[in-house]
Every structure is written in C-alpha cells, then in structure tokens.
Design a protein around this nucleic acid. Sequence first.
RNA 1: GCCGGAGUGGCGGAAUGGCAGACGCGGCGGAUUCAAAAUCCGCUGGCCGCAAGGCCGUGUGGGUUCAAGUCCCGCCUCCGGCACCA
Length: 876
Amino acid sequence: MGERQNRTLEVRGSNPLGSTKNPLEVPKTMYPFREIEEKWQKRWREARIYDAPDIPHRPKYYVLEMFPYPSGDLHMGHLKNYVIGDVVARIFLRNGYDVLHPMGWDAFGLPAENAAIDRGVDPKKWTYGNIETYRNTLQRLGISYDWRREIATCAPDYYRWTQWLFLFLYHRGLAYRASGLVNWCPHCKTVLANEQVVDGKCERCKTPVVRKELEQWYFKITAYAQRLLDDLKKLEGKWPEQVIKQQINWIGRSEGTEVHFLVDEWNERLPAFTTRIDTLFGVTFVTIAPEHPFVKKYLDRFPNREAVRQYVEAALKKSDIERTALDRPKTGVDTGITVRHPLTGEQVPLWVGDYVLATYGTGVVMGVPAHDQRDFEFAKKFELPIRVVIRPVDGETPDPDEMEAAFEDYGVMVNSGEFSGLDSKTGIQKVGEKLQALGLGGPTVTYRLRDWLISRQRYWGAPIPMIHCERCGVVPVPEEELPVLLPENIQSYLPEGRSPLEDVPEFMNTTCPSCGGPARRDPDTMDTFVDSSWYFLRFIDPKNEEKPFDPEKANAWMPVDQYIGGAEHATKHLIFARFITKALYDAGLLEVDEPFDRLFTQGLVLKRYWYCPTCHRLVDGEVQEGKHEVCDTPVEERLEMMSKSRGNIVPVGPFVAQNGADVARIAILFAAPAEKDMEWSDAGVEGARRFLQRIWKIYQEHKPSASVKVDPETLGPEEKRLYIRLQQTLKGVMEDSQAFHFNTAIAKLMEFLNDLTDFPAKDSPVFAYALRDFVLMLAPFAPHLAEELWEQMGGEGFVAQIPLPEPDVRYLEEETVVIPVQVNGRVRARLKVPRGLPQEDIVERALANENIQRYVQNKSIRKVIYIPDRLLNLVV
RNA sequence: GCCGGAGUGGCGGAAUGGCAGACGCGGCGGAUUCAAAAUCCGCUGGCCGCAAGGCCGUGUGGGUUCAAGUCCCGCCUCCGGCACCA
C-alpha cells in the first residue's frame, strides 16, 4: 500500500506529450537553499522566537490549523494547510501580537490498528514513528510553531483529560448509555456516529452500513441543537457561508405539530410528527417504523403478527443503502389494528412501513395520501383510500380518483369540519391549538441532529472511564484514578465485533469504586472525534497535571482567532467542538461559547494518476499505450484528493529535500486561490523556483544595504515611479494576504521583481531601498531566503520579528495615467496624460487624436462620460 | 428533488460595473554555448491585414446600462453537501 516511491507523473493537459523533465532534479544554478534553510531554522529555534507566553500581555492572536492524523508521509495536501496558517501567524507576529501557533497529533485511530493487523507492528510504535516523521518534515518547512506545546492525543497525559471530559459530561447529564439501533460497519466491525456514515456507507471503508441493536454511550448533543443553530449567527461573515449552511442543514430544525393517535384497546397513544397538521382530516392510515418500540411491544398481539414479524426482520437486515434507495417502491404491512383519529374519532388502520424512519420525529407518520407524495405512493400500492382536504387557492378541489400525484402545496382547507375554509397556514396554527387544548399534541419542534454515539469497539483509542458493577450498575471511575490506561501488548487487534480490550483480563477486571466488589471496565474506546473536540484548549496549557487546562490561561487565549482546515469537517469536528465548548462554557470553565472565531477552509490538493480497474490500484509508471502492462487492462485517468490509501501522494519530505522549503511554500500558495481545490502539478514548481532564484541573483549582483534611506521628494521621475510602485506593492500584498489571496499577493511580488529588474538606475538609493522593503514583504512567504538576504544586507534582528512596512500613502498613485478613450463604448485610443487633468483638456486631447477623429467626425457628441483618471467615453 | 458553489487563452489563474486575459506555466523566435542545460531578450486569445487598424471573444439565450466576465431573468454543464426528514 503506497510503499513505492512516487515517480514523476506527467502533467497531462498542459503538456499532452508529457514532460521528460524530472522535477526532483535540482538545477545547478540554484541558490544554496539547503544551507540557508538549515541555518535559519536553527537560529529561530535557538532564539525561541515562536514561543508563546502562558498569558499574553500584548494583543493576542491564536492561529490554529486542524492537526493531522500521522499516517505515513506528510504530503502536499497537508502542506497547504500548514503553509497558509504559517503565513497568517508570521504576519501577526510581526505586527505586534502575541501569537499562539501550536501543532500536535490526532494520534488515536484505526490506521494504527490496521498496521498492527496487517504487519504486526505495535500501534503505539507505529504512531510515534509517524509522529517523528511528521514533526521532522514540518520543522524542515520552517513553520513557526511553538513546539514546546506539542501534544499527541494518544499520550496518557492527554487522554487522561479526554476521559476527564467524558466524566464531566456524564456528571452534567450529557453522557448517557442507551440501547438502540446503531450504525454498524460490518467491515470495520465497529459502530459509527451518524456523521461518519456517508451515503449509507462507512466513511472509511465504503462498506454499506447496517443497523444493529447495541447498548452504547452517547453524548447529548441534541440538548444543544437550538444553541448550535442560533449561535451560527455569531459566525456569519467569519465562517464560510457554505459551512454555516451545512451545519444549519445538519441540525435540521423543523417546526411542526405533534398529534396523538389513540390505541384504545391497550390504552396507548402513538404520537406522530407533521409539518402539515392542516391536512389532519385527510388521514386514512397511520404508518409506524419497523424499529419502533411499540411494534416490538405489541407484535404478538397484532392480528397480522406473522406478516409483521417477517417484515420487521427483513427490514432490520437491510442496509441503509437498500432501504433508502431512491426509486425503490414503498413496502409495508398492515398490523391489523386500528388507531383513533384525535379529532374525528374515526378508526384508521395502522401499518408498518420502512419508509418511516425510526430516528426522525416520533417514528410514526400520519398517512395523508392526497397531500404527501410518499403517503400517496403507499396508498396507491396498498389500495388505501385517498381523501382530499386541501384545495388550491384559486382552483377546484382535486378529484381523488383522478390524482396522479399528491397535491403538496399550501391552499385552503376543505372537508375539515370546523376548520374548512381556513388557509393552510392559519389552519396549521388553529389545529395545533385545538390539539393542545385536547391534550392530544400541539406545536413542537424537531431536529434532524441525533445524539453523538461515541463508543467504539476498537483498541487504539481512549478507554471509556466507566465501570460495570453487578451490584451498583454503571459507576464512573473516580477522577483521581485517571487515566484509565490503555493496556499494551495486546494479543490480537483483529476486530471481532467487540472491543479487543474485552480479551484483556488485567484491564477488564477491576473493583467497583462504589462497593469495592469485583467489577468490569467498559471495554470500548472513544470515537477519535472526542479527542479532537477539545484539543485547542490543551494547547493553551499542555503540561498541566492538575486539570485539562487552566481557565485563566484559556480565557486569555480563547477563542481561536483563526482556524484553518478542510471543509470536510463541517458537520463533524466543527460541530462537535462547538458542542463541547458550549458545555464547558455552561459549567463556567470557559468564558467563550464558540471555539473558533474565524474559519478558513482551504481547498483540497488533487493529484492525477492512472488507475487500473482490474488491479484496483494506482499504476503510474506501469502504463504502456494506455494499458496496464501487468494485466493489459485499459487504465483510467483519475484526479482525486491526495491520500495515502489511493497512493497518489506527493510526499513533502523528498520534495523539500530537493527543492527547498521556500520553493514548496511559494509553489503551493501561488498555484491557485487558497480556498479552491487545486491539482498538484510539478509544472507550477518551476515558476516558484525561478522566482526565488531571480531574487537571490538580484541581491547578489547589487548588494543593497538595509540602512539606506530615501527622501521621496527629491527623486527623479524614474526613481519616483519605482518608489510609487513599491508603495502600491506593499499595500496590495498586505491586503491580499489578509483576504487569504496569497496567489495574487505573490503575483504582486513577482510584478514588483519585474519592475526591479527593468529599473535602469540600479545604483540609485531608491533601488536599494526597494530591495530592502521587498525582503520584508517576502518574508511571510519565503522566510528562510528573506532572513538570509536580510542578514546579507546588514539588517538587524530577525526579519520574522520586524514589523511589516506600512505603505507611504502619499505615494500610491502614479503621476501619469493612461486613459482609454472610447467612442460609443469601444476603445479607440489611449492617451497618456498627467494625473488629475481636467475633463475639458482630456476631451480636447482625445478629439485631436487621429483615430478618434475617424469615429467622431460628422457626428455630434451627445454625451461625455469621464471617470477621472480612469476612462473617457464619447457617445456620438 | 432541495441547499450551496463554479463555468474566462494550450494550462493554473487575474480583473471596486470602466482597457478582459495581471502573474505564472507551456509554446514560438532570438542572444549566449562547440553543443546542451541554465540564464537573458522578444512574441504568444481567435480571425482579417504588409501595416495602420478592424472584426469576434468570459458556458448559453435574453435584459438593464454610455459601458456587463461582473447586475437582473431564463436555460445548459460540472463540482460539493443533504436527501423517503413526514
């Protein structure tokens, strides 16, 4: 799996014939980046310039990139995340902030266990080995981390506090154990959170998920549904709209009405949820989900008990995929009992149907075939009556016998007793009130969000700190006994459908903290999203042995001012972290109730590769004339996110060794806007390399001094122009960087380098002055080269700590401008004129122009539009 | 189906309603070289033209405007998220 080193893959599209150039080959004339980068990394480290204080005394800025899961090699996809964060951190560090910029490892998780299963490697050794590699690579990139704060979620001194968090939630009634139907991945042999099921499949291995009845631990995130929704307003304009929308969707608030159907015989009531209570009089049946507890409870007493039993069993066996397949016909079975309509008193049949979801609303729906398409299909199939109770505002009441689809629009209520004649919206209110008055329901709100299932039947995670005692039941491990250590030297990590810890008697057998009798530990470990739902707090106080974090420090540093990561966490990590933060806030442990003030979601890094559909793997380098040379199958071209499992990664380590960290940084930032997906291509590297090489060269040729001073008032025209261009660049680069437009910021630096190259009077002080400021601007993007050049110029201190130059606002505009002259909106000439020339003079000069003459002659000028110093349009 | 986002040269991509294609990659031509690499200079959206210059051009059809890649209305395509959510 991805063991082979990546070769160059030709970049198709830009060069259909393919390049023979090896991007890993260093041109001989390259500046000595290796020595330079090593030298400055060492000096930064020794001077500890990236250390953040425990409590900031200057304005604080907390920059955080989503920490990685350390598997194998760090690749270009990761890199983008860290480089963006680093540029931001460096800008704030230079502008007088105390910057907290930490890095750590999301180190619990399945791949470690799989490595153990596949290759017999100890998960801990494997993980720490990877961490070592990752850390080295990141350090080699010169990212400005405060490494003293490094954390790993798999370390006992971290997961001790993850366990503390569990107990904290437990004591606040936010962690509970419940038996229910859970998402089960038959391949990973573990349960999954809702958030980890994608398209009905396991997010990790793509196996269709099935339902299974298990007793598991849940976090009560639904208790925070409304606040998680409401507080999104605080994030507007600071989080990507996309992510906010996704969370709104995910939480899925729905306002409706609960309505109770009565089962007189057993003195039970079945509440149903609907958003269209105005259609209540159209109910001709009621449908209940197969998994509904009512079904289980009364199955034996249903007249059609055999049919129902078979149906329920079959439904449970189906995967979610099968059950939710789009065009699947409705299925169901009549229970044989009837339920009483709350308003009409009519008895309607109760059906079991798997189009009703047990986990949404109440698991029961009222069947209104005339006004709900699903009910309509169900009724048609089972020949249930259709009763129309809504008519269009300006139309006839539809004839049920002729309907081909449900009429789902709002309209006017008909055949609805005392409510007939009301419009739908009023009806919804009135019927709701009536039900409430009768004690048979009333207005209510439901959410799509479900509680967070956090038990995992796997080894490599934080053990759940709970003990099961036969006498006392479930008992929490006392806080002072944390951490509950994960046992090492496990015999088998192979998933058996139960936690591997269950087979470790030394771990399992313990004494009950309550009664002292023999008891067993909870064998499950926590979902790794629990680990990462609070890690940003531990960075603030990573060595604290008394508590997860010191509130004083946390309140000084929180919230994270800028969070950077992938949008794929919109409804996972980002919602879990918000929930945990709110829970800590409610307990008075934090003064903020939102963890991340600003969020930036960077685009993915994609890599094109050849895929063999027969061998099911990447086959770059084994392709002959469009076929895989091993099996002779035509290969497919794929463009996908870099990932170790696909094998299409470009590892950062070798790339940086060959090209240098600064080249890697510039290449990844310049290639595309940071928020957009990009294809990694070696072609882009060439531009970055040339750019830095040209910078190096111009400084070696002219040896500018950092102490040069310039009085712009005394400059000649050419010099003044360069001075003005410098100010424009300073302004543009800063503005672009603050907007995360690093690609255009670098483009502006390139443009200015072109100006410098073309500048004729290279011995002028203004030239040296421009080179000085150029280095200062370059530093956030290519910090090593900038430090080196700064030193060569005789500059004092680290560039990394020197404030970014402010543009001289008096000189942002050039003295002459080129004004396009349009006739009827089409450009016919361009005039070079002094800035601020009055309109009359411009028009006069325009009319003197030969080409303008051709279009204006014999015609009268009807209108003159002049945008000062921008454009002239003559309408004739 | 619903909710987002995006369609601009050979490619990645620029453009507060005001010169479409900045910057870079690639390509072509030249300088340098015994030769190549590297480097430097010039050209590089399409079509017509010796040239001056002209016509066309931002997925597509309309509209607003002196002026539209940008604003409005309709359509097409692609990507992401959600989806039997009652």
